[in-house]
Design a protein around this nucleic acid. Structure first.
Length: 260
DNA sequence: ATGACAGTCTGCGACTGA
């Protein structure tokens, strides 16, 4: 099962690139973030022509997550549990694959949290605490799962082109990094690091100041695997080709492949 | 450095993102 994740920064604008990616990468499951539209406005017919079904949690103008899949999603959860007052469309989770090799997959769009020291930063940290609590519940069920998406966290200085300049950025603050590590300490595996040890590999490059051309980016899109899912991993990589296109998203896809 | 870039709607400027 090939699972991919991509912050498309508007699914309407990125539709041609999305269709190209589905044709080229052929994922079984694709998690999307920042679709920036209502679920009813997702271009379902266009992706259906390529054989993909859509589950989406959207909102007007901002945020919004979706999961595309060849086979229908089961047992869908809309929204990250733990705060009934949270109305941001940032979390969608469902089960995919045959019952003998089922995988629970979540598409997550973790809050950015900038500027640090504001209510936005507090919201980010609270969201990460809820994600840790939710992951603990998933682990107790002993179902293989993959938490895929835009975490808005650079786990270490190796994941930032300018660690000094980003020292006080919400993406690099110790409060965010410690909560990301808490996910790892629960037993989750950073799929990319299973296969790639080298520093300065990125999934995001700012539109400004020629960051893409200079390869000055951030590694903030991650696929965290439960131990049972990690047992099955046979590959993981960042696909840089969509970022180089005209009118690209500022993020590029990451994917992993699980046996079975 | 008042900045850059890109998306959305409140729309031809303001807000958000990372």
């Amino acid at each position: 099962m090939k699972i991919a994740s991509w912050n498309v920064n508007s699914v309407k604008v990125r539709l041609p690139h999305l269709l190209d990616f589905l044709k080229n990468a052929q994922p079984d499951v694709l998690c999307l973030q920042e679709i920036k539209c209502l679920a009813d406005d997702f271009p379902r017919l266009e992706v259906a022509t390529l054989g993909y079904k859509v589950e989406a949690l959207g909102q007007r103008a901002y945020n919004g997550v979706a999961i595309l899949s060849r086979e229908p999603a089961r047992e869908i959860v809309f929204g990250l549990p733990g705060d009934d007052g949270d109305d941001h469309a940032r979390y969608l989770e469902a089960t995919f694959g045959p019952s003998g090799a089922a995988v629970r997959v979540a598409s997550i769009y973790l809050p950015n949290g900038n500027p640090s020291g504001t209510d936005k930063f507090t919201y980010k940290l609270g969201w990460m605490d809820r994600l840790n609590t939710h992951a603990a519940g998933l682990l107790r069920r002993e179902i293989p799962f993959v938490l895929a998406g835009d975490y808005n966290v650079c786990p270490t200085d190796d994941d930032v082109y300018d660690p000094v300049g980003f020292r006080d950025d919400a993406l690099c603050r110790i409060e965010a990094r410690s909560r990301f590590r808490a996910l790892l300490y629960q037993g989750l595996v950073d799929a990319y690091r299973v296969f790639h040890r080298e520093p300065h590999k990125y999934t995001y490059w700012d539109y400004q100041a020629g960051r893409w051309q200079r390869d000055e980016g951030l590694r903030i899109d991650h696929m965290l695997l439960s131990p049972h899912a990690a047992d099955r991993i046979v590959g993981c990589d960042i696909d840089k080709s969509p970022r180089g296109k005209e009118r690209a998203s500022d993020h590029t896809p990451i994917w992993c492949e699980l046996a079975g």
